[in-house]
Design a protein around this nucleic acid. Structure first.
Lengths: 334, 334
DNA sequence: ATGAAAGCGCTAACAT
DNA sequence: ATGTTAGCGCTTTCAT
C-alpha cells in the first residue's frame, strides 16, 4: 500500500488525518504514545507531508526570497565575490533560523514589477535584497504595501525601507585619508558610480581629498570581469594618469588593478598605493596583502536575518548603518 | 475593493474564476478580447495568483532545489569560492530556463535523510547537488526512487546517479606532469581527500609522479579558511618539507600557499612551483598569475540544467565527464 | 468560449 | 486526546 498523503497514513495508523497532522508536527495535544507510533509509521513508509499543501493552508511558507538586482550593470553572471560571500552568510543564517532560501536574479526594468513578482507571489514570507542598485525609490514604493523586506546597501535619509549596510561615505573617506597620510598626492577612484553605494564611497573619498587640498580623478570601471583588465590598462596607460594612490570601489577591482600594475612593472606600494573595499577573505592573500576598508559581512547577514524575522512577526525595525574599518596591510606604506 | 484571489478578480471582471485562470495563464481557449481585459484588470489591481495554490493544484512547482552538502568538512560557512561560482552560474541557467532556485545547505548524517528531506518535500521538481562530498552511496540510494537529481562531482564506474563534472584523476595527472616537466622533483599534494573529487586528483598526481620515478607527499589541508594559513605554515616549515613543486586541490588552497610562501621569502616559481585547480576568474589575478587546471564551470552548469530538465520530463540522461585543461601561467617555469 | 464543480493535500477551529 | 468539518486559492475536467 502506497502512503502518499496524510489520509493514507491515517488509515494505516487507524486514526484520523487531523491526528496524524498534529503528531507529525510534534504538537503537544496528542498522546505521546500515538505520536511516537505515527512518527515511526511515517518513517517506515518514507512519508513526508506535502509542503505546498501545508504552506497553502497555514499561510506561511517558511521561505525567504533572496533577490540580487542586476541593476545598472546588465551582466548576466553574478560576478562580484562580495555578493556571493554575503549570499553564503545569508544562507547560513537563514538555515539556522529554520528558513529556506529562494534565490532570484532580477533585472530592474524601471517599474516595481521585478520586485513585486516575488513579493506578490505568495511564495515567500519575506524578501532580502542583496544590494539596491539604483532602485532605492522603487523599493520604497514596494514597501509601502509589503513590509517584510530588508535590503543590503547604503542608507539614505528619509528612505522608507529597512537597510543594513556600511557607512559607505565614511569608508571612502577612510580610504582616501589613509592614502594621503601615507604620502599619496595624485589620487584616483576606480569604480562605476551607478549604484548608490559606490557613489557614496566616491563622495567620501572626494571629501577627504578636498580637505587635503587635493583632487581625485574618477575612473568608472564597469564590473564585467573579463573586460575589466583592458579598462584598467587603458586607464593606467593614459599619459596623464600618473596616479600614486588609488581608492577602489571593491576588493575585486583592487585585485585587478594590482595585477595590471604589476604587469606594467610598477611597484606597490612603492610607486602606487592602493586601497580596496570589502575585506573579503581573499584580500589578505594577495601579494602584497591588500590594504582595504572592511565591511562586516557576516555581522551584516546576521542583522538582516534578525530584522526580516522581526518584520515577519509584525514588529517594527529600522535601518542599521555599520561603521567600516580600515585594515592597513601592505599595498599602502606605513 | 480588495482583489486578492482569482475569485475576487472574477467578480470584478464579471466572469468566472475559471476564465480568469485561463486568461492569466495565456491559454488559447479564451476570447482574445476578454483575455486582454482580464490581464489589464489584474495589472490595475496588482493581482498575482498565489503560487502555493497554483503549485499544489497543478502538481509542479517550477522550483529546483540546489543543495550544498557540507559533508566531511563540518564548516558552517560555505567557503570555497568554487562552489559559490558554480552556484552563480546555476542561478543564471535556471533563471533562463524559467525555474526558481531553492538553496539548501545540508549536513549529511550517514542516512539518506538530509537529501530526502528535500526530494520528498513536494517543494521542488528536481534537485541539483553541488558536490557529492563522501555521499555517493547515499545519493545512489535516493535516486533509486527519486529520478530528477543531478550532482556535480566525480563520476565513478557503476554509479547510479547522473553526475556532471571534471575528470579529476586526469586533472591531477596533468598538474603533476606539468610540474615534473618544469623541473620539479620534490613534490607535494595539498588538500583533504575526504571528498572523492580531491581523492581522485591525488590519485592522478601520484600516478604521474610514480611514472616519473618520483614520490609525492600528501599534505591534508582542511578548508577552514581562517585556519588554513597556520596549517600551510606548519606544512611548509617542516624541515623535511623542502618541496619544489606543489599540486593543490583548489585555487583557494593555491592562493593561500602562494601567500605563505611569499611571506617566508621563497620565490615562485624560482624556488617552488605551484599548480592550482579550478581556474576561477581570480586565478589570473594572483601574482604571479596562477598556473592551474581548468574546470569548465559555466559549461558544467549549463549541462546540469539541461539534464535536470530532461529528467523532469521523464527522459533518460547519463553522466558527463569533462576533460580538464592545464592553463600554464607563471607559478610554474616554462 | 465560458461556467460550474470537484478537488490538490494539508491545517485548524470546533466538537466531543 | 481525537474526530469532523471546512476551507487555503488555484486548475481542470465536464458541461453547456
Amino acid at each position: 500500500m502506497e502512503v502518499r498523503t496524510l489520509a493514507d497514513l491515517a488509515r494505516v495508523a487507524g486514526v484520523s488525518a487531523g491526528t496524524v497532522s498534529r503528531a507529525l508536527a510534534g504538537k503537544s495535544l496528542v498522546n505521546a504514545e500515538t505520536r511516537e507510533r505515527i512518527q515511526a509509521l511515517a518513517r517506515q513508509y518514507g512519508f513526508r507531508p506535502n509542503q505546498m499543501a501545508s504552506k497553502l493552508r497555514s499561510r506561511r511558507t517558511g521561505v525567504i526570497g533572496v533577490v540580487i538586482p542586476l541593476g545598472h550593470e546588465k551582466r548576466q553572471q553574478i560576478s562580484d565575490p562580495f555578493f556571493l560571500t554575503l549570499l553564503g552568510h545569508l544562507a547560513d543564517q537563514l538555515t539556522e533560523a529554520g528558513y529556506d532560501l529562494m534565490l532570484s536574479r532580477a533585472i530592474p526594468d524601471g517599474t516595481t514589477d521585478w520586485l513585486e513578482r516575488i513579493t506578490g507571489s505568495g511564495m515567500v514570507d519575506g524578501v532580502l535584497l542583496i544590494g539596491q542598485s539604483d532602485q532605492s525609490d522603487v523599493i520604497d514604493q514596494v514597501v509601502s504595501h509589503y513590509r517584510p523586506l530588508v535590503a543590503w546597501g547604503n542608507h539614505r535619509e528619509g528612505q522608507k525601507h529597512v537597510v543594513v549596510g556600511t557607512d559607505n561615505e565614511l569608508g571612502g573617506r577612510l580610504a582616501a585619508e589613509h592614502l594621503i597620510a601615507c604620502g599619496a598626492r595624485r589620487l584616483a577612484f576606480f569604480g562605476d558610480t551607478a549604484g548608490i553605494e559606490i557613489a557614496m564611497r566616491l563622495r567620501g573619498a572626494r571629501a577627504a581629498a578636498e580637505a587635503a587640498g587635493l583632487h581625485i580623478k574618477h575612473v568608472p570601471i564597469k564590473l564585467a570581469d573579463a573586460e575589466m583588465g583592458p579598462q584598467l590598462e587603458a586607464a593606467l596607460a593614459d599619459a596623464e594618469a600618473d596616479f600614486d594612490g588609488i581608492v577602489t570601489a571593491s576588493d575585486l577591482i583592487a585585485m585587478s588593478a594590482l595585477h595590471v600594475l604589476h604587469e606594467s612593472g610598477r611597484r606597490i606600494p612603492g610607486d602606487v598605493q592602493i586601497v580596496g573595499f570589502d575585506d573579503l577573505p581573499l584580500a589578505r592573500l594577495t601579494s602584497p596583502p591588500l590594504t582595504t576598508v572592511r565591511q562586516e559581512i557576516g555581522q551584516g547577514a546576521k542583522v538582516m536575518v534578525e530584522k526580516i524575522r522581526a518584520l515577519i512577526e509584525g514588529e517594527t525595525r529600522h535601518s542599521k548603518v555599520m561603521p567600516p574599518t580600515l585594515i592597513a596591510r601592505d599595498t599602502t606604506r606605513s
